[in-house]
């Protein structure tokens, strides 16, 4: 896995580079906006960690220009600016995720995993989140090394939740993905699927945020 890290603050850049290398990622560390844009256009990286306040070219401009030149590499924006605004502007400019400084290493690696999971999963045909893994080829799951048989719906549901592990997935979003927009289904259909999944994995593997949606923690039990 190759990650481009764009960060002009030396101690922070150094800290992240070391941490990522310990996690066995190949890291290219750049400190300048223009260099970053050139590197992103080469499309050699699997992921870009982009700071917003950069010399020569602002991070948001780098991102917007890269996206305009069809660079589709996942980008996580790191910012010391205020959360809400940075998030909105970052996501508008084409970021896939954002992190407000300071953040824990765990948080960073979880976001990286989450963004690369899809790409990696497609390549390896499997998604891993802690003790749960999902085989995309066979539609089978493994929980604590034990094989679990899933129905097609259960598999789709688990896949969405695992691809976004650590984030809350709204229930409307899940319903739309599972049943489509026009298929009128009972309001309890989703609950039934979740219940079935919990029985096959564990109750705590899927958390309910009542009134909002569901999530699989980054480290499910």
């Amino acid at each position: 896995m190759h990650i481009i890290l764009v960060e002009d603050d030396l101690p922070l850049g150094e800290a992240i580079r070391q941490a990522l290398e310990r996690l066995s990622y190949a890291v290219t560390w750049l400190r300048d906006g223009r260099e970053a844009l050139t590197a992103m256009r080469d499309q050699t990286a699997d992921l870009v960690l982009l700071d917003l306040g950069l010399p020569n070219k602002d991070g948001l401009d780098v991102l917007a220009e890269a996206r305009r030149s069809q660079v589709n590499t996942p980008v996580i924006v790191m910012t010391a600016r205020d959360g809400l605004e940075a998030r909105v502007r970052g996501l508008d400019a084409g970021a896939d995720d954002y992190l407000v400084k300071p953040f824990h290493l765990e948080e960073l690696s979880a976001r990286i995993r989450s963004l690369t999971r899809r790409a990696q999963g497609l390549a390896a045909n499997r998604i891993d989140v802690g003790v749960i893994s999902l085989d995309i080829g066979t539609c089978e799951a493994e929980y604590r090394g034990k094989r679990v048989e899933l129905t097609r719906r259960e598999f789709s549901l688990l896949r969405i939740l695992m691809e976004r592990a650590g984030r809350i997935v709204r229930r409307e979003q899940l319903e739309n993905s599972l049943y489509g927009l026009d298929n009128a289904v009972g309001s309890s259909a989703l609950e039934v699927q979740i219940h079935a999944l919990r029985r096959k994995l564990s109750f705590d593997a899927i958390r309910t945020i009542r009134g909002v949606g569901y999530m699989i923690p980054r480290d499910p039990t």
């Binding site: 603050d9 101690p11 150094e14 800290a15 992240i16 070391q18 010391a80 400084k101 300071p102 953040f103």
Partner: peptide
């Protein structure tokens, strides 16, 4: 936030 971030990661 920036020095805090590097300390936290370290």
């Amino acid at each position: 936030r920036t020095p805090l971030a590097s300390t936290m990661i370290h």
